[in-house]
Design a protein around this nucleic acid. Sequence first.
DNA 1: TTACATAGTGTACATTTTACACTTAAAAAT
DNA 2: ATTTTTAAGTGTAAAATGTACACTATGTAA
Lengths: 244, 244
Amino acid sequence: MNKDLIKYLSVDCVVFGFDFDKLNVLLVDRVLENMEQGLIFSDMTLTGNHVYEDETMDAAAQRILFDLTGLKDVYLEQFKTFAHPDRLNKENDRQWLISDKRNPEQRIVSVGFFALLATPKVTLEWKGRNVMWVPVAEVAELAFDHNLILQEALKAMRSKLLHEPIAFELLPEKFTLSQLQKVYEIILDTTFDKRNFRKKVARMKYMVPLDEKQKDVSHKPARLYMFSRDIYERTRKELLNFIV
Amino acid sequence: MNKDLIKYLSVDCVVFGFDFDKLNVLLVDRVLENMEQGLIFSDMTLTGNHVYEDETMDAAAQRILFDLTGLKDVYLEQFKTFAHPDRLNKENDRQWLISDKRNPEQRIVSVGFFALLATPKVTLEWKGRNVMWVPVAEVAELAFDHNLILQEALKAMRSKLLHEPIAFELLPEKFTLSQLQKVYEIILDTTFDKRNFRKKVARMKYMVPLDEKQKDVSHKPARLYMFSRDIYERTRKELLNFIV
DNA sequence: TTACATAGTGTACATTTTACACTTAAAAAT
DNA sequence: ATTTTTAAGTGTAAAATGTACACTATGTAA
């Protein structure tokens, strides 16, 4: 196996997580300091990495995800590639690359993936840098073109959420209908009527109600549901719904 | 402007065209021959090209489209990036690259775009190679990983067609409802009831009926329609239709 | 026992989907 | 002129889905 990293090629992973309340994205600290001046700047980046000579893009993205979470079966999707000639040309970014012994003139193509995580458990340190969940609504100015990448990831993820059953990827295997509704409401920034939402879900045969209830809540426990991909694949049909 | 080509980076354009009857894709001849043996092989490729040092991917794709059609405002969309380490490793492909004085060991990342063309007019020759429309259903084995790229382009295009109004991009500015219906039927490989299709279209305010009829047809001429992006943008709303 | 928090439920009306077959208008052929 | 050919254009009834709207039920904690 060829473990040389390709200088001009990287993947960036936009890792989304949901905590039943808001949508979060995984970011890592980027702190540049030196002997004389101390702190030069401090900001954050998405989780990204270079790719090995004989590695596919998907494998590289999975590798990052595994390093961050220890999980091997994370929902992952290539959504867009970023290759603008000036994407690494901001002053901070050039300094950072130089301090990292990389050539800031090297044009780097980055293939963007987004991942959906149900578990909040991630490593706290990654390549010597702090990792943290940040609410998407509170993300400040990021390194490189990472704000753009995040925006595009959000767009792709919302579009997918509208048209395909991926909401479950942000929830535990067994979830309540209120949790499911919340996923849609938060990510699409809207609200739904509870009764109508449940009526709609009831029509979806692949939303399987379980004989099981929520535990450890200080109110009436809700029924749990599971998504059956099997039933979904067997019963799906989609035609001409390009406008609702 | 830096006109050096980046060796490791290319764009491939899957150019779709519709002739009121079937979906076609633009391909170029690839013929390898030498002095001693004559013809070594002959097959076809998608339209692709390398990218200039200071050129964006979109600009490179537009440049190819302009060279092929003379048009500047073609519908164009980045849909996926192809970077498998072995994507250029078939024997024919290696020979071709060597004969073209390129290094077959160089891993090349290709950013895939698909384009939708209403006009059948394209150049007949491009970089010294023959260009032709080929019905998508009749595409044979292509060079490199271009069959895969075509499949993925089709998938992305179908999905977009289901959820967004892009059918018009494959038709003249003024079109009949039968032509529109045919676009959906051919690309989604299905049929629709004429009356129900027209009822559905009638509900879309952005499908504007004109006081104008088809000309030069040997049967009852149909009414012409236009798509109004303006009305579409003002009236669109889409929520939770992830299964029909 | 009560307060609190969230779960869970029904109905009436409007809109959309679906299945289905004949008449109309123009050009081309006789 | 008349007929033939070709595709355009149209309505209705039943079923399914969407929408608006407010109260009761069930568990824990105080």
